[in-house]
């Protein structure tokens, strides 16, 4: 694969014997991710690259992120049952996003439930603040993915960005 070649070539061995990925190679990975699905049609170009594992789908990390957001909301609803009516539809939306992302990327959803990134706060206001922060981070990640996505994925990513932004509003 054209874009992964520099990554492999960029692997250097330090004098103390530890292996590290060079800075240039890391930048190469960044460029690969940034190109996203646009790079996909260009892969599979060389006989020499046969042993390379297929590049992960650039949207794969978004599946985990969606499930993490859902898990955080469900945990918060467990700690604060009076918030459950507000939080459960938002968790369900993230799970629907994960299912749709899994469908378009051709990946299976993980069988293990995702762990929330942290235990919900005992204080309700602090819980909502933490949930809003998680949605904000998720919105920004989806927005970035939307800007870089190929035409057949951009509408889904736009809806996910808008959903996370509206969750922020719903958590006010």
């Amino acid at each position: 694969m054209v874009f992964t070649c520099p990554v492999v070539m960029g692997r250097t061995t330090r004098r103390n014997g530890t292996s590290e990925i060079s800075r240039r190679a890391v930048l190469g990975v960044g460029a690969l991710l940034a190109l996203g699905g646009a790079a996909a049609p260009l892969t599979g170009c060389g006989l020499l690259d046969r042993d390379e594992p297929p590049a992960p789908d650039p949207l794969a990390p978004m599946i985990d992120e969606a499930l993490r957001l859902a898990a955080g909301l469900r945990a918060a609803a467990g700690t604060h049952p009076d918030l459950a009516d507000r939080l459960t539809p938002l968790a369900e939306a993230h799970e629907a996003h994960a299912a749709e992302l899994a469908r378009v990327t051709g990946t299976a959803l993980p069988s293990e439930p995702a762990a929330p990134s942290g235990a919900p706060e005992a204080d309700k206001a602090a819980t909502l603040t933490a949930l809003r922060q998680a949605e904000r981070t998720g919105r920004d990640a989806a927005s970035k993915a939307c800007a870089e996505a190929p035409a057949d994925r951009v509408a889904l990513l736009g809806s996910i960005t808008a959903a996370r932004a509206s969750h922020l509003e719903a958590l006010k």
């Binding site: 539809p89 919105r139 509206s166």
Partner: peptide
């Protein structure tokens, strides 16, 4: 994208004013 996001957020605000639950939809604009 900015328009899609802004209108989805505003729809959520109007749903809150109207007392519509849930406040959000899973795939705005779909």
């Amino acid at each position: 994208l900015a328009a899609l996001v802004e209108y989805a957020v505003r729809a959520t605000r109007w749903r809150r004013s109207a007392g519509i639950s849930p406040l959000t939809v899973a795939f705005p604009g779909r």
